[in-house]
């Protein structure tokens, strides 16, 4: 939109400079200050300058206010945030608890919000246990969202266990950055 405005601005400037405007004494900085030709004094007939824009000038493509209503209808950009969990737990770390609260508030601000919640674990422990743990983490975030008033039908949860680590550690490694839930607000 900024680019559109800039293009329109320079187009208008260009039109002004090239004389592609209907005659107006107020904006005519280059020509005479009234719409009367010097030739008029030497001719018998009446001579008036045209008040129509010159025929070779391009018609304006779109006025800026054509897009005012469109811009207001543009949905907010989706948010992707990670929150982290204590070891072998579905309890958020202190910092992530605060981050999560901020994200939850953002959900409440949106029109027709949807939230996609995806749970992950680190590679410590068996794959089966980690599947269950990642599910519990996603469910914990889901419960928080429902508690603050988000419609349960608009929340979708997924769980990936240890299968998609953020940090590649190899198996059997405790890694905070892998013990996470991705919250996608849309």
């Amino acid at each position: 939109m900024i680019r559109t405005a800039a293009t329109l601005g320079s187009a208008l400037l260009l039109l002004g400079l090239s004389g592609c405007t209907v005659y107006s004494g107020a904006v005519n900085t280059f020509g005479p200050d009234k719409p009367v030709s010097d030739v008029a004094a030497n001719t018998d007939g009446e001579l008036l300058l045209s008040k129509e824009p010159p025929p070779f000038c391009p018609a304006p493509v779109a006025a800026a206010d054509d897009f005012d209503k469109v811009d207001k209808a543009m949905p907010a950009a989706p948010i992707y945030k990670l929150v982290y969990f204590k070891f072998d737990s579905d309890e958020l770390t202190e910092q992530s608890r605060r981050d999560a609260e901020e994200i939850y508030q953002e959900v409440l601000k949106r029109e027709a919000p949807e939230v996609l919640v995806t749970g992950h674990t680190d590679t410590s422990g068996s794959a089966a246990l980690n599947d269950a743990l990642s599910k519990r983490r996603a469910e914990a975030v889901r419960e928080d969202l429902i508690e603050i008033g988000v419609d349960a039908d608009t929340i979708r949860t997924y769980y990936k266990g240890e299968s998609e680590p953020l940090i590649d550690t190899g198996d059997g490694v405790k890694e905070l950055r892998n013990r996470r839930v991705e919250i996608n607000v849309r």
Binding site: D66, F67, K69, V70, D71, K72, A73, M74, P75, A77, P78, R186
Partner: peptide
Amino acid sequence: DDTRIAVGP
């Protein structure tokens, strides 16, 4: 895919 469109009157 996060593409957004807005449609005017």
